[in-house]
Computed example of a mutant assay.
Amino acid sequence: MSYRSGRTRWKRFAAVLAPGIVAAAALGIGMAQGALAASFLISGQKFQVAADTLDIRGLSIYPLVDVAKKGTLVPVVVIGARRATLDGLCQSVVVPVPLLGPYTLRTTAGERSRATNLFLDTTSVSVGQANFDDIDIGVAAGAISKGPISPGDRDSRFFDPNVFAQQAVSATLIDVRATEVAVAASTFNLPDLDVQVKQGRHECF
């Protein structure tokens, strides 16, 4: 189903992500039974990514299963962008330090951060307002053409070309709050980059 120059409230959009998440969980069960093999390992540490605005040209959304080094299966929704522009970017991860308690590694960047072939492996996301242009909901993952698919994902046994996916020519997301297990990009340009390690919990949201 295709909508031209449409606008979609994120809550409705998130609702139709549910079948994809279920499919990702099913892939995880298959891997646990030996039917699938992990294509890469993640640390398993979740972290926060926030942005005041995220403008995407070439959007793809599809389910996958990431595998932590310890073998834990993590169903995710991959959000891909051929080109992305971010304002007010913040990334934070809390690390427990023996005897000292939690410390937060917090990274921020200024306006107009830019990325190409950006992939966010997401376990949860909320958006204050989401506007989509030329969106297709229910496209087969293997038929995605408007947005990118990571070559590593496409070659992985976790990638099901027939599974429920979504794509759009462009999207503007406002007040983004996401929990990630991995972020990758071909290029990432961050003006006014600031990295701090602070004692205690100083998360982005």
Rank of each mutant, 00 (worst) to 15 (best):
Q167H: 03
L99G: 01
S2C: 02
P161E: 08
Q167S: 07
L190G: 01
R106D: 06
L120E: 05
A140R: 15
S124L: 10
T104M: 10
K11F: 02
D133E: 12
A50N: 15
P161W: 06
L118D: 05
K70R: 12
G138I: 07
T107M: 14
F158V: 01
P98R: 11
G152V: 03
R7Q: 06
V97F: 06
A26Q: 11
A84Y: 05
P191C: 04
F159W: 04
S156E: 11
L41D: 15
V76Y: 06
T123F: 03
S113Y: 07
G128R: 14
G71C: 03
T172R: 15
P102T: 06
S145P: 00
R154M: 09
D194M: 09
L173P: 00
G6M: 11
R82A: 05
A38R: 15
R57N: 14
A182I: 00
G101E: 13
A109N: 10
I29R: 14
R157T: 12
D87L: 04
I29L: 14
P161M: 08
S124R: 10
L54P: 00
D155R: 13
F205T: 09
A143C: 03
D136L: 09
K69F: 07
E180I: 12
V67S: 03
K69E: 15
V22S: 10
R12L: 04
G58S: 10
V169C: 00
V77P: 00
D136W: 01
A18M: 07
H202Q: 11
R82K: 15
G200V: 10
F119M: 10
K46A: 09
N189L: 09
T123Q: 12
R157N: 08
G128H: 11
L173Q: 02
P96V: 07
K146P: 00
S2Y: 10
E111H: 06
A18T: 07
G6C: 07
P102D: 14
M1A: 08
